[in-house]
């Protein structure tokens, strides 16, 4: 049975004592077809830096939106996701969606006059918003490229950063796979995931070409994530125009 958006799932196998479960956010077409789904981690406790980005849940714990990951759901034996606990109350789901839109700077990117301030710091200090990095181990002989989409203040202080994988092979033509970096690659918005900062290769000589994105690329990625994670209603609540496929 496919997982369902807006439903809380238990943690199947404990890895971190503070993780209680997951809230599914990817749209239900994605959930029906894909072997990984987009979730927000539900934690028992939150740090001070997580507090502005977390939603307390009446069923216990906090949905921590910067801990956005792509997970294999059960019944896969390796799955971290367990059984469904129940649908989140509408107000809590809406609050989670709103926090996620804010965290991903959608209020700035999808406004009528998009503008995001890029810091003067070197992109080797920590993974920076809008920059492209190699991350993770080599897979099939190549290391994957990621565009960082989490805000710099978070990336610098939390030890985590959220990013979208890019591909030059898959030819998706909808908003979920926007062409970026002057057509050199597509962003796989449904695979948005969070890593420890140490997973990104920050060394200057090890940066991909091109090493950065344009504002238009980041706007396209924001629209793509709005579709894959069905954030259209949250964008409307924020007074923004949502992409058509981002509404339920």
């Amino acid at each position: 049975m496919p997982v369902v958006r807006g439903v809380r799932y238990d943690l199947a196998t404990p890895h971190d004592p503070d993780t209680l479960g997951f809230l599914v956010l990817t749209n239900d077409r994605w959930n029906a077809k894909m072997s990984q789904v987009g979730v927000v981690v539900i934690r028992a406790r939150i740090s001070a830096i997580e507090q502005p980005h977390a939603v307390p849940l009446s069923s216990g714990g906090f949905a921590v939106v910067p801990r956005l990951v792509s997970l294999t759901p059960s019944p896969d034996p390796t799955s971290a996701m367990g059984a469904p606990v129940g649908a989140l109350p509408a107000a809590e789901l809406a609050a989670g969606e709103d926090r996620l839109c804010e965290f991903l700077l959608m209020d700035q990117l999808l406004s009528a006059t998009p503008r995001v301030q890029r810091p003067a710091a070197a992109p080797s200090a920590y993974p920076m918003w809008g920059e492209v990095y190699y991350a993770g181990a080599s897979i099939g002989g190549e290391t994957k490229r990621f565009v960082v989409v989490s805000p710099n203040r978070w990336n610098a202080a939390s030890g985590l950063a959220t990013a979208v994988r890019t591909t030059s092979r898959f030819k998706g033509t909808l908003d979920e796979f926007p062409l970026i970096t002057r057509g050199a690659a597509r962003a796989c918005c449904g695979d948005i995931t969070t890593f420890q900062v140490g997973a990104f290769d920050l060394r200057r000589r090890h940066r991909p070409v091109p090493p950065t994105t344009a504002l238009a690329d980041m706007i396209s990625i924001a629209k793509g994530v709005a579709v894959t994670h069905e954030l259209g209603e949250a964008l409307e609540r924020a007074g923004l125009k949502p992409p058509p496929d981002s509404l339920p």
């Binding site: 890895h15 077409r29 994605w30 029906a32 077809k33 894909m34 072997s35 990984q36 990951v69 792509s70 997970l71 294999t72 390796t78 971290a80 991350a135 993770g136 181990a137 897979i139 099939g140 994957k144 994988r165 591909t167 092979r169 898959f170 998706g172 033509t173 909808l174 979920e176 796979f177 796989c188 449904g190 695979d191 995931t193 969070t194 890593f195 420890q196 997973a199």
Partner: peptide, 23 residues
Amino acid sequence: LYERYEQDPERRLTSPELERIAR
């Protein structure tokens, strides 16, 4: 589109690895 992406060999290799790195 999602069905085609699910079958994409690069995605099939990469997605479980990204999950492992996050965990």
